[in-house]
Design a protein around this nucleic acid. Structure first.
Length: 393
DNA sequence: TCTGGGGTCCTAGGACCC
DNA sequence: TCTGGGGTCCTAGGACCC
């Protein structure tokens, strides 16, 4: 049976949401109507474009480019800082509104959801009418616009919602793939990024249609096992389900770009401890336990490295994470200055894997952690941490 | 004042086992 | 007297997405 899938995507999410916030708070201008971007603070080296208005786009400004370069393209560019807390609020409003239409809803990211309406569509006599109703209601209720893609699977729904923006509904049913998707440049296809586009160009594949009809053996030379997936994607084939189960992270990570490059051990260890506590707390809140811990870093010359290690007992305990992080830190080249440093908890499961040890028990650690978390949640900002970690260099 | 941050998935290559 | 072969697990690195 053919499925009916909606992909609902907030137009220029960060920029729209900041526009909503500003208008609500008496700002007299809609920043969606001028050349504007949302970008981080350059002084703390976060100066890249996170979202752009349609007019900023006309100047050739793209996401993830440096603010410096964006300003050079457009002299009167208006720049606003991101407001992550407000974005989370809007994202939840959006999701809670949509989930009234079907229990089969998947939150794909902060600003997009998939809805499987296959079994609920009989409730709505006209699926297109329903999409317009959802789109218009979101605009009226919340003040931002969305695009909705309607298709028989997630891939095509997502492609469709990307067609023309903003505030639009598009369909891309299986029988429309040839007409609507084949003529597009292959770089428009999901999972085809910059590098893949370059490689495809070499073998004269320029449109999605070219890829759809490509010879798998030819592709294999460049893309190995990925070849079949690429051809399937180009043909609009995808049978991945809409997953509404509470989301279980595969990994939780955190990283920070430092105010200035450093190889000062004390500074780096202090930051690693801080971050160990943050990721640990996030894992504990979701009741997830990591069996792999990694540290990641970027050097002054922008080269990335990582070191990871599997644990015998999985954990989400701050002290245990930090202990492992420190031992991983010992492996890194202490001469190189570090620009960005991070921690990743990987192979997360919602049960604790524990090998029974004759010699020690982690029970005490876990109990202590629970007490610390309780205290910290009561007194917002105070971070309680065993003193030994502060006194040890 | 060049170049963020949080994710997922895949692959190569080494270690180790039988 | 000159180096197998299959399987699994683990780490490092890279591509891609929003």
């Amino acid at each position: 049976m053919k499925r009916i899938i909606f992909h609902v995507d907030v137009n220029n999410a960060f920029l729209s949401w900041t526009a909503v916030y500003l208008l609500k708070n008496g700002y007299d201008k809609d920043i969606r109507e001028v050349p504007s971007v949302i970008a981080g603070d350059e002084k703390s080296r976060h100066g890249i474009v996170l979202a752009k208005s349609p007019l900023a786009k006309k100047y050739g400004i793209v996401s993830a480019e440096t603010l410096y370069s964006a300003r050079r393209k457009c002299k009167n560019l208006e720049v606003f800082p991101p407001q992550y807390d407000f974005y989370m609020e809007m994202s939840n409003l959006f999701y809670n509104y949509l989930k009234d239409y079907t229990p089969l809803i998947e939150k794909a990211s902060i600003d997009e959801c998939f809805l499987d309406l296959t079994n609920t569509k009989y409730l709505y006599d006209d699926i297109l009418f329903l999409a317009y109703k959802i789109k218009n209601e979101i605009k009226e209720k919340f003040g931002f616009t969305v695009n909705i893609g309607i298709a028989n699977n997630k891939l095509c729904a997502k492609m469709a919602s990307d067609f023309t923006k903003p505030d639009k509904v598009h369909t891309l049913f299986m029988e429309e793939v040839k007409d609507k998707m084949y003529p597009l440049p292959v770089s428009d296809l999901l999972f085809v990024g910059k590098n893949t586009t370059e490689l495809l160009k070499k073998i004269n594949i320029n449109t999605i249609g070219d890829l759809a009809n490509a010879n798998e053996l030819t592709l294999k030379k460049y893309f190995k096992n990925r070849s079949r997936d690429l051809i399937n994607a180009a043909n609009g084939i995808d049978d991945s389900p809409v997953i509404s189960d509470p989301f279980i992270n595969k990994c939780i990570s955190i990283s920070r770009t430092l105010v200035e490059d450093t190889n000062n051990e004390k500074t780096l260890k202090r930051i690693l401890l801080d971050m160990s506590d943050i990721v640990g707390l996030r894992a504990r809140k979701k009741n997830l336990f990591a069996s792999t811990i990694a540290i990641t870093f970027k050097t002054s010359s922008f080269k990335s490295y990582s070191h990871q290690e599997k644990l015998i007992n999985s954990t989400n305990n701050t002290m245990e994470i930090y202990k492992k992080v420190l031992s991983l830190y010992e492996n890194i080249d202490k001469n190189e200055k570090i620009r960005n440093i991070g921690i990743r908890l990987d192979n997360l499961k919602n049960i604790k894997k524990e090998q029974v040890s004759l010699f020690e028990s982690n029970k005490a650690n876990d109990n202590l952690q629970e007490v610390i978390d309780k205290i910290n949640s009561k007194y917002d900002n105070s971070i309680i941490m065993p003193a030994i970690f502060y006194e040890k260099k």
